[in-house]
């Protein structure tokens, strides 16, 4: 009897081992114990806004805005005298009608107007607005802090940038622009009696300020001084 043709002949151990190795290899190919992925791809999936951070440049964004959209937006800003009048009548209603905020953040007005310088100190110049009703506003000429420009101009949304850190950096860049491009002329030329035409942003007051206090404290984004 031919042993090689016998049905009871045991399968060689080497063949069983080979089959098992092939089967295990196939399974591990389909269901690997671990995967090696490119670090860049992994970070993009799990990391914090990496790609966005690399592309977001607050200085460049501020520069583009400053030389482009901001000028057109300033022409559409609310009339300062009308806003002051509305605040005096009803601060909450004025805020509702004229102010804007990012999310549930602080509300700011974006206003434009002109008037005569009536007082100045190292931080502010006070301006008596042109118009039938006397109204005093203050333009800041000292260091510029905070988010008035970023949030007041109505052109920027926190959800357009990678995160709050970047949004705050954008506020700082806009403030630098104000300090370098708007304030020097006001500091040098806006003496008492000079006429100033301006556009700028101011925090919406909660109540009507007392008689001698300016109704709005404005961070100017544009200013022209005559006389």
């Amino acid at each position: 009897m031919d042993a090689s043709s016998s049905p009871d002949r045991p399968i060689p151990r080497a063949a069983i081992a080979a089959a098992l190795i092939v089967a295990a290899g196939a399974l591990l190919w389909v269901f690997p114990l671990f995967r090696i992925v490119p670090l860049q791809g992994a970070t993009a999936q799990t990391g914090p806004n990496t790609a966005a951070n690399e592309t977001f440049d607050p200085a460049a964004t501020a520069a583009k805005l400053w030389s482009g959209e901001l000028r057109a937006a300033a022409q559409r800003a609310a009339d300062a005298a009308a806003v002051v009048s509305a605040i005096r009548a009803d601060p909450a209603a004025a805020r509702q009608k004229h102010a804007r905020s990012v999310g549930m953040g602080t509300a700011y007005y974006f206003v434009r107007g002109s008037g005569k310088v009536v007082a100045r100190d190292r931080s502010f110049i006070r301006i008596a607005l042109d118009g039938p009703q006397p109204a005093i506003v203050a333009l800041r000429i000292g260091p510029i802090f905070g988010n008035a420009v970023r949030d007041g101009i109505g052109l920027l949304d926190v959800n357009q940038v990678p995160g709050l850190h970047e949004f705050n950096a954008l506020a700082a860049e806009l403030n630098k622009r104000v300090e370098s491009e708007v304030l020097p002329a006001l500091r040098e030329k806006a003496d008492i009696g000079a006429v100033v035409t301006f556009a700028g942003c101011a925090e919406a007051p909660e109540s009507v300020p007392v008689a001698d206090e300016p109704v709005l404290r404005i961070v100017p984004v544009m200013a022209e001084v005559r006389g």
Binding site: S101, G103, N159, G163, L164
Partner: peptide, 8 residues
């Protein structure tokens, strides 16, 4: 929904 909502 907005991704971020700053609160004053």
């Amino acid at each position: 929904f907005p991704q971020r909502v700053p609160v004053a």
